[in-house]
């Protein structure tokens, strides 16, 4: 996180636009991960069904929807139930295939490493329609979940000031990080903390008390609180 914030601070000084958080992986690394799948699945030019279906045009496809492959009952049910293959459903599936479709013939334990999955998904994505040519094709990245001014995100908070201001928070939120009905606010990544507080301030998040508290905090004060709470361990 710290290095990201250094980049943000430098970028904002230079007036550079700041790269989004849109998810991307590395297709080349993904091709290596795909070695594990190759025993049963083919992808690319001339790919055919093996014990598993070929994976061309996978993204945006309904599960079990290729006419010429004999799917397990489990996948047929999943397809009939509306399962479609997108980056998010593939991520869940690849982490633990049997959790999503218990009777599948796919005897694979899954890929526990999230980066490996992300890379594999980016690699497989290259064999489905390209949105540049077919604009309705599946997305290739996830949107930023906020539109906060990068200059606000780039503010470097003063944790000492944050500690002073935190008195107002710890009346309800436990400094020790416990959650007994009121959420824990310690050890949050700074950017998430700042985004959340500004969402209350601009009333995009609904909670009357938080809207009131955040409403009178300035940008520097929110940054200070984020800087303080991010390291608060007891």
């Amino acid at each position: 996180m710290r290095s990201v914030f250094k980049y943000l601070a430098v970028a904002s000084l230079l007036g550079l636009p700041i790269a989004g958080h849109a998810d991307t992986g590395d297709a080349e690394a993904g091709e290596k991960v795909f070695q594990q799948c190759k025993g049963c699945h083919q992808v690319g030019a001339g790919a055919k069904h093996r014990s598993g279906p070929h994976l061309n045009g996978l993204f945006g496809r309904k599960a079990a929807s290729l006419d010429d492959f004999r799917y397990s009952k489990s996948f047929q049910r999943a397809g009939a139930g509306g399962l479609e293959w997108h980056a998010d459903t593939l991520d869940v599936f690849l982490e633990n295939p049997r959790a999503m479709a218990s009777g599948t013939r796919m005897s694979f334990r899954g890929i526990k490493n999230a980066d490996d999955r992300a890379n594999l998904i980016v690699y497989l994505r290259t064999f489905s329609d390209d949105p540049a040519n077919i604009p309705e094709a599946d997305p290739t990245a996830q949107a930023l979940d906020h539109d906060l001014d990068p200059a606000i995100l780039a503010l470097k908070g003063d944790p000492e000031y944050g500690e002073y201001l935190s008195g107002e928070c710890t009346t309800c939120h436990q400094a020790a990080g416990g959650d007994d009905g009121i959420p824990s606010i310690t050890l949050w990544p700074e950017d998430q903390f700042v985004v959340a507080m500004h969402a209350y301030k601009t009333k995009q998040r609904n909670h009357p008390v938080m809207q009131m508290i955040a409403g009178r905090l300035g940008d520097d004060e929110i940054a200070a609180l984020a800087a303080y709470f991010k390291d608060l361990e007891n």
Binding site: T24, P135, E136, D138
Partner: peptide, 20 residues
């Protein structure tokens, strides 16, 4: 109509959402 929104990633302009 078909439409989409896009964001800049390090590699490219990436599609993040759309409709048809």
């Amino acid at each position: 109509k078909v439409g989409a929104t896009y964001e800049a990633t390090d590699e490219k302009i990436a599609k993040v959402d759309g409709f048809i």
